[in-house]
Design a protein around this nucleic acid. Sequence first.
DNA 1: TTCACCATCCAAAACGATTTGGAAGCGCTT
DNA 2: AAGCGCTTCCAAATCGTTTTGGATGGTGAA
Lengths: 339, 339
Amino acid sequence: MAVSSPPTLQDIARALGLSVTTVSRALAGYSDVAPATRERVRQMARKMGYRPHAWARRLRQRRTDTLGFIIPTHGPRFSDPFFSEFLAGIGNEAAQHDYDLLVSTHGPGQREIDAYERMVAERRVDGFLLVRTRVDDPRVRFLLAHQVPFVTFGRTQAENAHPWVDVDGEAGLYALTQLCLQHGHRRIAYIGAPPDLMHARHRLAGYRRALADAGVPQNPAWVQVGDLTEESGYRAAQVLLRLRPRPTALLAANDLMALGALAAVHEAGLQVGKDVAVAGFDDVPLAAHTQPPLTTVHQPIYDIGRRIVAMLIALLRGQPLPQQQVLLQPRLVVRASCP
Amino acid sequence: MAVSSPPTLQDIARALGLSVTTVSRALAGYSDVAPATRERVRQMARKMGYRPHAWARRLRQRRTDTLGFIIPTHGPRFSDPFFSEFLAGIGNEAAQHDYDLLVSTHGPGQREIDAYERMVAERRVDGFLLVRTRVDDPRVRFLLAHQVPFVTFGRTQAENAHPWVDVDGEAGLYALTQLCLQHGHRRIAYIGAPPDLMHARHRLAGYRRALADAGVPQNPAWVQVGDLTEESGYRAAQVLLRLRPRPTALLAANDLMALGALAAVHEAGLQVGKDVAVAGFDDVPLAAHTQPPLTTVHQPIYDIGRRIVAMLIALLRGQPLPQQQVLLQPRLVVRASCP
DNA sequence: TTCACCATCCAAAACGATTTGGAAGCGCTT
DNA sequence: AAGCGCTTCCAAATCGTTTTGGATGGTGAA
């Protein structure tokens, strides 16, 4: 026998002298197939190595069993430990429910929506996962307008319009700032994220509220904005360290920028943890191994990935969600960089 | 008009009083459609917002226009800056050629092949991308046996049996070791990768060859094996730093382990770059911002991703590959950690 | 005997595209 | 007027499933 294409329902039906219908229904476990027949079909299917053709099935069922995830990249040289962990989470959860994950990459901008539009129009996916939400997020607007199901990691302006999971960044930065205050710091600087990102707002608000609650005066010069890369954290820290009087603590909106800040502090001949405290947000695996180890706010990225996928699949299957919106409380991880 | 499902060829045909065939062929640009008709069809298609149904088309064409990429995760808390950059590369190149990227995650082990088997048997993908190749790689064996096209990042035992792109790790570690030798180091230790990984062999070989060429005696105790995480680099470095006489240089098989080593050196009260030199491999973005900045070997991950996808697509389209196997020469990036 | 009622099976119609193998109409030559 | 070649169009088959709406034959009750 020559190398042949994989067996179809047809082939099984022919081999057993049955109809395609019966074979299909036998394998699907319908009750209008005699038990003996069902068994014969099952055996033959196994023997012939039958596997259903994914697309034929999906075409007929008018579902894709596929989730879309478009990674919001910046430059080509983009690298964020966040995404690998998140991908592991959504990948595993999706696989567990027999869903495929269609992944693409696209930076914010004009053509960004086209990438979503294409997947929706060509019926490639049943729903989307969104991360790095922006305050007025065009992706959210588009998906809402087209009634495409989606779940986001992070809130948006339209808080009640869609399901999301988020970590309470305000509480995180409140705790971080409070930690510094308790250690006597009064000149606490903040390296924030681009203000169009939703989490930038919350984290900045947490920082401000902690200072306000403690009655500590705020200095606009102590708040810098970075773009979440090490490089931008490095530069922002350089600026802050040149101020007089110099801030004694640098809080960053994420760990990568905090790592950049660490480098800047070292370079300025200052000692991290003694002369200047530094802290971040995310608790990337690396944070435990910097010099000194980085104080930060832990986000359970992997679990959030799983959770978001589980929510989206429930949504697609019409199952009720116990919670449409989930706000997780972050955990402060105190290490030597900000004791 | 109620919210209706997206228009099909049928709808266009009905609207114009044409057959589905003609509409299909008009849109596909066949020459057996009158120019005037073609134009009418095009206009109507645009007006109705017609988009071809991806699966229907693929079912008929018996192609998937989809590439499979299964991320080899270790634990759930896996995080490697490598993957985000690689994903950006393969994602962008695939999109450019109108290919989809089906992503899944799976750790090495028994069920690993099942993930591939499933995608192949259910005809979900046309071919695969493989990374983190192992010496005797079960994925390679499986795909070769089933005649599924694939391209790997990294060589395997079966060097000539499949197309690959790789960075010459032996040359990289040769250069790195030579750099240390030139600076007078004689006790150069190496923190290697798991020996089942193909690149572990090459890099270790480069280290050994450089020492041999220089006539420097080798000490088995100076070669440790890590698992590519910061944590393992940290531990391995601790072991190495306790040896007497102490090695004066620590070379690691990747940057993450080198970062761990940096931490261990600091913790031992030694000064990196003065008392002990440290170097890595990969040139992750972070490497430029460690304390001190990390000497390393640069790998153009993003470009390699693009290149691998381009090769796979050429393969799928039956186009001849100019080069079945591509060995790139790495670039040494000298920074302060190993001056 | 007749009829209802199961249990079991199946033909045919989807799903939405592409491809095959003509058919119809027209102009031109002979 | 017949034959040929072109242009332009289309009906039907096809990809591999699922689903719909019966068909068939046997059993038991009336």
